[in-house]
Nucleic acid binder design. Structure first.
Lengths: 344, 344
DNA sequence: ATGAGAACTGTAAACGTTTACAGTGGGGGG
DNA sequence: CCCCCCACTGTAAACGTTTACAGTTCTCAT
């Protein structure tokens, strides 16, 4: 009852040709028509399927690309995944997904995996950029594209959002609709996005000539509870609640909406709320959420494109010194009811 | 400037031992301590990393598992993915994700991939079960677990939801809160979930002794627009709008909420709304959405478990005739504001 | 019919491992 | 002091392909 899996040799014998001919048939190389037919017939009859592993061993390609993020459930990373997958697939690559939980150790492990030849390339969006990670990036055994920011000089292609402009867009919008006391609820400052958004908020306020009231700044996680909790704290401000809330992502904004609603404050009449990332949640919440679109989908698409360039180009996998490319995706403010209250 | 990637042979020469010893060092087999140290030192120095492809060729394992769904962006599948990944990872498997767009051809292609040895196993959630697909399932070259229903006798482990009970829970709840004219907005009838939910709705109504008014049944896609459009049609019913709406998934329900709000109807006072799948959207919408949890997360977890059983067990990969296991996950009604209006 | 050349085919080596089997050497019991 | 056994190590074959090279068979012009 042992059913031996047929190999190229099995087929060669059955068809009375050499293994080279069988190989050629399956690689579309020139073969006499009668030979091809015989081989295909036997392959069909015996249920032969070429072994991709053996092929990889010779060709040194796996036709796989890895995608590593903190949590694939995060709508931002999901949006990237949805764009990356079809682009790679069109070029015949399969996608291996790694949810690292944000652990730099695991991220480095994934980078190592490139050396093991698990994948031909990697798109990674590290949430914390440690020196170890940078070291591993520099020595990666296959092309890597980073979604996010890396220090200048890092020899790696990268696609970044422009938080600074994004925050500025949001602040300008809030000022435009007449808000003056603007609160800010952010995620952890030791993450790249957290740190960026903090700096951008302060710069943006300075640009607008508004002092930052530390009593109106709250820092927590990029989670809904942080929004709820931050809003509670800001509402208790001695000078009364702020008239606008800038939240470092949509989840935080949703949490803030919960608190505001519970406190009986009207959005946007009493407090305008702006989120960031423009995830699908923004369109679903009530009121619908004005949000800064940082272009996750586009970042995913661009990253996949950059990676494919390297993958298609001959071996010079790692960017030759100085040839690392940086793409910056422009942010866009998507105005909804939580700041204008009109249409819903 | 060619930097030859070191192989087991390179290390063997550098350390003055045989390749067998190097191999043993990296596989934790008994080796004299001094040997081990020398090998590890050279490996470190030369940056040797074992080649997983070559290893796979010998061992006939890839340490990869594939997960194939229609659209990985769908919250239901995403919930599965989030559970599957850590379970498999704990056993050392990487996850290859396939978004098939619901094309049976692509699904069959993924099944074929098992024969090519792309992966050691597969979790698949086909949205349409065609005869071809069943054939491919029966002949899969590696263990497969189906999330969803397959005809009895199909030699494949599967994990299914219990739509019937789920719908019954929803109907009973709606009846309990005094609703009598219950509308139903469903997805395509030629998909497994669509067909199941339709049957369940009709059975459930029959059980409750309520006739089904076809004017209160709408069929479209599993999309938000279908909900909006279905609600519009049902509102125009000659006897007036229904007092409750059962929607075949949360997206449909959200669309319905949009329409109801636009029409000035109050939810749940005028119309109660129930969704299905209990995705994160349900908790975010306004009013928050009562939804039938069909246990996607648990289905994912169970599926991963079943697959691991097969993967760990010796070669009898395919279930021996009749040993296919079926797990049914119990549904649960999550009551929120869209039917009780209380807490929000 | 013959030869040149094209078109195809076969042989064998290589890809980087794992592992059965056959050494090799040293330590301890007799 | 010898021998046996054990622990370790080395040799070589195998995994299933691709491909350089050499060999074979055609085709066609002469």
């Amino acid at each position: 009852m042992a059913k031996p899996v047929p190999t190229i040799t099995t087929i060669a014998e059955a068809a009375g040709v050499s293994i080279a001919s069988v190989s050629r048939v399956f690689n579309g190389q020139p073969v006499r028509d009668s030979t091809r037919r015989r081989v295909l017939a036997e392959a069909e009859r015996l249920g032969y399927v070429p072994n991709a592993v053996a092929r990889s061993l010779k060709s040194n390609r796996t036709d796989q690309v890895a995608f590593a993020v903190e949590d694939i459930g995060n709508p931002v990373y999901l949006a990237m995944l949805r764009e990356i997958q079809p682009v790679l697939r069109a070029d015949g690559f399969r996608l291996v997904v790694h949810s690292t939980g944000g652990d730099p150790g695991e991220e480095i492990e994934v980078l190592r995996g490139l050396g093991r030849r698990h994948a031909d390339g990697l798109v990674i969006s590290p949430i914390r950029v440690t020196p170890d990670l940078l070291g591993a990036l520099a020595q990666a055994a296959a092309p890597v594209v980073v979604i996010g920011s890396v220090p200048p000089g890092t020899p790696v292609d990268n696609v970044r959002a422009d938080s600074r402009t994004g925050v500025r867009l949001a602040l300008r919008h809030l000022l435009d609709i007449g808000r003056r006391r603007i609160g800010f609820v952010n995620g952890p400052l030791d993450t790249v996005p957290g740190e960026r958004r903090d700096a951008a908020f302060r710069d943006g306020m300075a640009e607008a000539g508004r002092p930052v009231d530390e009593g109106l700044v709250h820092v927590g996680g990029f989670r809904r509870e942080t929004g709820a909790e931050g809003a509670r704290r800001l509402l208790a401000h001695p000078h009364g609640p702020p008239d606008a809330l800038l939240c470092a992502n949509d989840l935080i904004a949703l949490g803030a909406l919960d608190t505001l609603r519970a406190a009986g404050l009207r959005v946007p009449d009493d407090v305008a709320v702006v989120g960031m990332d423009d995830t699908e949640l923004a369109a679903v919440s009530w009121p619908t959420l004005t949000s800064v679109c940082l272009g996750s989908a586009e970042r995913g698409r661009r990253a996949a494109g950059l990676l494919l360039d390297r993958l298609r180009g001959a071996p010079p996998a790692a960017p030759a010194a100085g040839s690392a490319r940086t793409v910056t995706v422009a942010p866009r403010l998507v105005v909804r009811a939580s700041t204008t209250g009109g249409d819903q």
